[in-house]
Design a protein around this nucleic acid. Structure first.
Lengths: 186, 186
DNA sequence: GTCTATACGTTGATAGAC
DNA sequence: GTCTATCAACGTATAGAC
């Protein structure tokens, strides 16, 4: 694992545990097993590091979810796939999803440029527009639908993270909660 | 307005704008128009101040929502009332709801004792149990229902805060989105 | 209760050798 | 690219006068 990866991984762990500003760069370097100066060789400022970590983590989620979506699938399959895979990734990558959540509700979030903001979200929005046009989805404002879907996903994720569920039970919950959502928006 | 209120109000504003740790106590005192020492007369540490502010703000929300819930009402009316009033308060108190959100996804949240954690949530959960028992609500795990309701509320709140809606339009959105939720869980 | 002044540790960031 | 050494600035918290 190259230094940059170790640094990001250490930063993630500490940020989730203590928060951005309560985590000194010195501790990040120590946790990563590199010198303090090394960290500043890769990132000019601490803020730059935080932003890079956010983009990196968001990118991992996208990389996990997007390849599993195919234009060939029915619209329901597309939504089901995005839904299921987002939740699965979040549960399997607890620290990463906690970090995304924490970052998104922090003031730093406003520093992310609209383009960088979640290619994920853009894709979902596209499918929503298509769904409305083809009357698969209810005729509601697209961004209302988007926010309802996203919130629903984060709700179920929270629920799964709070309890300890077997893989089988977890899949059952995801499946059933998707039906609830799908019935709601179609 | 007494000093303690001014301090909390100033802290809230700055925390929302810059985050907990990026906001020095000196700036809070300055914004509040009091001396640095005065702040530490009321709160022994900065962390204590943050926790107090959270409880204070959460209390304001509860005070707004709970009195409007009556045991006399039908279960649907109770849910509708909690739903509507929570969203209304959040939209009218943008900074406060942003702070609650930010605090809840921060590591500090784990410092809140279960009892302090949201009398709001406890009440909602009670009604959910009642709804399941009387078969008004779908037979699903109570805390899954709770998280779905809560997430739905925060989704609609986000949507309303992102756009600029007239009061009339806003009420219409709240009403319609409640119907969506209600259909989903009954 | 409120203020001023200040102590003292910590932190982000730099310089420069290897 | 990576390290060690270092610093200036800052931030929390305290002491003590009023």
């Amino acid at each position: 694992m190259d230094k940059i990866e170790v640094i990001l991984k250490s930063a993630l762990k500490l940020f989730v545990g203590f928060g951005f500003h309560a985590t000194p760069t010195s501790k990040i370097a120590k946790e990563a097993g590199v010198a303090n100066g090394t960290l500043f060789h890769y990132y000019n400022t601490k803020e730059e590091l935080i932003l890079a970590l956010y983009k990196h983590t968001q990118g991992q989620l996208s990389t996990y979810v997007q390849p599993k979506v195919s234009k060939e699938d029915s619209l329901e399959m597309v939504f089901r796939s995005i839904y299921t895979n987002t939740i699965e990734w979040s549960v399997e990558n607890k620290a990463e999803s906690a970090f995304i959540q924490q970052f998104s509700s922090s003031p730093l979030h406003s520093l992310i440029s609209p383009e960088d903001m979640n290619s994920q979200a853009a894709i979902l929005l596209d499918f929503i527009h298509e769904g409305i046009k083809t009357a698969n989805l209810k005729h509601l404002p697209a961004d209302l639908l988007q926010t309802l879907i996203t919130s629903h996903i984060s709700g179920v994720t929270q629920y799964l993270l709070a309890g300890e569920f077997s893989k089988v039970k977890q899949n059952k919950i995801i499946k059933e909660s998707f039906e609830l959502l799908w019935d709601m928006i179609t």
